[in-house]
């Protein structure tokens, strides 16, 4: 390891290349970062590698086999939530940052290997790089690398977390406008409880569903997550949403769908034997259609409400 390090130091110390290298590193990384993040809402860096092949679920019902072709989607899907682009941007940013620095290190390693290879009449020498100039240079490189790589990523990540993921609607007005859902994970299903038409939990018209969540488009969805038994994690890849559901605690999270359609909900925490089967559907409906849906669902929920069955009314023992 120290031989590799001293080789790098050698080349950097003995030529003007070092300042070019440091300058390049800073320029390559800082330029796109500052300009792209300023207009993050419209920027999509297109350099993401092919990471995933997603199969839309194929219905195995015999009489539907022809009607449901398997659609293959390559690469990450377009984000369907209002803050989804932030996570895509950060992901691409880190990927490019790491690719560039990795490439630089490879080049710097390659140069001395070629330049200082064995030649007639040239004896190899060994150098720890312990002179003052070496130490100064090492410090400069370390601080630069830390600022450029770690601090920058941390800085942008914190902006995204504060403005996006952690920006949960909590005020009374904000909550009144939001669609509130309580999520109860269990082995092996997701229970959802929405407020229904009256906007309050713990009433007869709470819409309770298993493995199917319907939410309105372009309205924040505020989720309170808990679990009955073990730790689960509600994962909606299209919304760039993931949050743990812990027994004995209520976790808050939110997202705002900007596209309508059906999306997959998965469990992202290994929770037992049938973890892999713990998949649900998220349906996002346009506002007018959603109102109609909610009115119907509330009527059905009220009709199915059993006053004596206190145990089924699980909103919100979990908070107390």
């Amino acid at each position: 390891m120290h031989t590799t390090g001293s080789l790098v130091l050698n080349v950097l110390r003995s030529s003007r290349l070092r300042w070019i290298v440091v300058g390049l590193l800073a320029a390559v990384v800082l330029a796109p970062a500052s300009s792209a993040h300023a207009s993050a809402s419209s920027t999509h860096l297109a350099a993401a590698p092919v990471l995933a092949v997603a199969l839309q679920d194929a219905d195995v019902d015999a009489d539907q086999a022809d009607a449901a072709p398997i659609v293959k989607r390559y690469g990450p899907f377009e984000p369907a939530s209002s803050y989804g682009h932030r996570f895509d941007w950060l992901f691409n940013f880190i990927t490019i940052l790491i690719s560039v620095s990795f490439l630089l290190v490879l080049i710097l390693l390659f140069i001395p290997v070629v330049r200082d290879r064995a030649k007639p009449n040239k004896k190899a020498h060994f150098d720890h790089g312990s002179s003052l100039a070496d130490k100064r240079f090492t410090t400069i490189v370390s601080v630069t690398v830390f600022i450029v790589l770690d601090a920058l990523v941390l800085y942008f990540a914190m902006i995204d977390l504060r403005e996006g993921y952690w920006n949960i609607p909590r005020g009374e007005d904000e909550l009144a406008e939001a669609y509130q859902v309580e999520v109860l994970g269990q082995q092996w299903a997701w229970n959802f409880r929405a407020t229904g038409a009256d906007g309050e939990f713990g009433t007869a018209d709470d819409i309770v569903t298993i493995n199917h969540l319907t939410v309105p488009q372009n309205r924040p969805v505020v989720l309170n997550l808990a679990s009955k038994d073990v730790i689960h994690s509600l994962y909606i890849p299209d919304m760039r949403f993931k949050r743990d559901a812990n027994p004995g605690a209520v976790n808050e999270a939110w997202f705002e769908p900007i596209k309508s359609g059906d999306f997959a909900i998965l469990c992202a925490e290994l929770c037992g034997y049938a973890h892999y089967q713990m998949e649900s559907t998220l349906t996002v409906l346009p506002a007018d259609l959603f109102d109609e849906w909610e009115a119907d669902a509330s009527i059905m929920a009220t009709a199915g409400y059993d006053e004596d069955d206190t145990e089924a009314q699980w909103a919100w023992d979990f908070r107390n």
Binding site: L184, Q186, N191, V208, K228, D229, D309, W314
Partner: peptide
């Protein structure tokens, strides 16, 4: 069972 709580 534990996971059957409030399951309907």
């Amino acid at each position: 069972g534990r996971s059957a709580r409030a399951l309907r």
